[in-house]
Design a protein around this nucleic acid. Structure first.
Ligand SMILES: [Zn+2]
Ligand SMILES: [Zn+2]
Ligand SMILES: [Zn+2]
Ligand SMILES: [Zn+2]
Lengths: 164, 164
DNA sequence: CCGTAAATGTTATGTTATATCATTCTAGTA
DNA sequence: TACTAGAATGATATAACATAACATTTACGG
């Protein structure tokens, strides 16, 4: 476990729940959560920090059965594309990294608080933000398709540890 | 002029105003808008679309006095860093590109509507969006430092041209 | 079993960004 | 004017992120 979650919790349970949800969603979408895809998703789930594609690649190489050939970047990027298209993960463009969606059942856009100190990323409800965006977009006659909100700053834990 | 601005306007004047403002801001900040930096800024100003670093690099190579040695990536990236730190441009992380700020005198975060069709990017007022973000961040005890809001969709012009 | 489509493997390359050190320019100062 | 320290730029190499293209394997209905 290479991270410190935003609040103490049973992370094993966290992972299991996410995997179960993913299985359901893939079944509903009539797509297959193949071993590679599941493995990549599991790697992403290990932490509440966003993970870079090449970090995932390394982890995948270690996770594969001994003797298996080393995976190449397309393997990871294809799995990421699959997971994104099924709304199981988000991409954080400002830091080129990928993170599990905390509410994959509901279609929604991407709203994150990213701690510059510990790099934990917290997915937040986007209703109010989205409404504010819709208002501005409406004034410009702009049709909204995707929303990416990435807020950088310092999380509670890190503020507590480093006052001032 | 390699672009179609969101609304018809005298783009030459647009550029001149932005350059004059930049001179002022740099003077106020006690920093130098050197020829390279000014040239890079001018290249970015040519269009209301965001411009990639390597596109800027090519344009810079053509713009330099004949016989001058070809610029390398760090030249562009250093100029971009300078322009960003003086709030003259924004980086659009979702498309890895750079665009001039339309209100550089006022410090503010980054709120953009990006047309997926014509690639024009419109900087919008962020007060309401920022307020909504502040509310969510407050609930998480998160200290906001930077906000990046990138909305992808279709602009008025493109909607008009391609109904349905 | 066979044929097809999906998934994965493999190789190469494209795209974006930075590290590092050398050189030149700028301004203040003696 | 000459010296000097710091800023800016030049030059080279490489890191980090991502995709194109084609070969091979796998899954699965007929
Ligand atoms: Zn989500
Ligand atoms: Zn933190
Ligand atoms: Zn701006
Ligand atoms: Zn458009």
């Amino acid at each position: 476990m290479a991270n410190k979650p935003p609040a103490a919790h049973d992370h094993r349970r966290c992972i299991d729940k996410a995997l179960a949800a993913a299985e359901q969603i893939c079944y509903k979408n009539s797509v297959k959560l193949t071993p590679v895809r599941k493995q990549v998703f599991t790697i992403i789930l290990q932490s509440h920090r966003a993970t870079g594609a090449y970090t995932i690649l390394e982890a995948l190489a270690k996770a594969l059965p001994a003797g298996a050939s080393k995976p190449a970047p397309p393997t990871v990027y294809r799995a990421l594309a699959f997971l994104q298209s099924n709304r199981l993960i988000h991409r954080l463009a400002s830091i080129n990294a990928y993170i599990a969606c905390c509410r994959p059942a509901r279609n929604h856009e991407s709203y994150f608080l990213i701690c510059q100190h510990c790099h934990n990323a917290t997915e937040i409800p986007g209703e109010n933000i989205s409404a504010a965006i819709a208002r501005q977009a409406g004034m410009e006659g702009f049709k909204v398709r995707r929303e990416h909100v990435e807020v950088l700053g310092v999380c509670t834990n890190c503020t507590a540890k480093e006052p001032g």
